[in-house]
Amino acid sequence: MRAKTGLALYVLLSVMGVGLLASGLSFVSIALYEHTQTSAPSSWRASQGVICDVRSIQGSSPELFQSTVCYRVNGQTYRIRDLPSPVRATLGTVREVRYDPGNVSSARDIAQQKPDWMGLLQKGGTLLFAALVTLIYSLFKVARTRRKMQRR
């Protein structure tokens, strides 16, 4: 009876560990993907942008806001939209914008993006740590159960 309980505990902890491991890896993957999508290549040039419009996204719960950043290159004004955020940006706030010198309308607002992927990376790291602890514990538990079974 004790062997079945030990085996059931091992299976349960292993499934939990694998689930946590998969969750952690997915969070880390999402964070790294998001980082590559929001960071600008080193060949892109920097410009000073200003938040020139903030709109509420209708029907979102919680309420989300999307800001537009205006920036100037060679006397011409360009606009980019930030990702939706629960924080309402303030009109006139200065932001760093990086743009592609070959296609000036292709740009990214650097300031808004950093906290998003960093939070995902931290959550993923926490889940990976929890998964490893769970898996190691379950392996020790199985080894202990096997040793007890061999003594009998």
Rank of each mutant, 00 (worst) to 15 (best):
L128I: 14
A111C: 08
P115F: 00
R2Q: 12
I57R: 03
F65Y: 15
R147L: 13
Q48W: 03
L135Q: 06
L128W: 00
G19N: 08
R95L: 03
K114D: 07
L127I: 00
V54G: 13
V11A: 08
L121K: 04
E63L: 00
V15S: 12
A143Q: 13
A46R: 08
S106C: 07
Q112H: 08
Y33F: 15
R108H: 07
G49M: 04
V11T: 09
K148A: 14
T126W: 12
T145P: 06
S85C: 03
L120N: 14
G6D: 12
T134C: 15
F129R: 02
A31M: 03
A130R: 03
G49L: 02
L21G: 12
V142W: 08
T68Y: 01
R95N: 06
R55V: 09
C52Y: 07
R146E: 13
I30R: 11
T5L: 13
T93F: 03
S61W: 06
G17V: 04
A22H: 06
Q122C: 09
L120F: 10
R55Q: 13
R2D: 13
K123S: 13
I51V: 15
G125L: 10
R55C: 05
V11G: 05
G6M: 03
V11R: 04
S23D: 08
L139W: 07
V104D: 12
Q113H: 08
N74M: 09
A143K: 07
V97C: 07
L20V: 06
G119Y: 00
A130P: 00
E96R: 06
A31P: 04
S85V: 02
Y78F: 14
T5S: 14
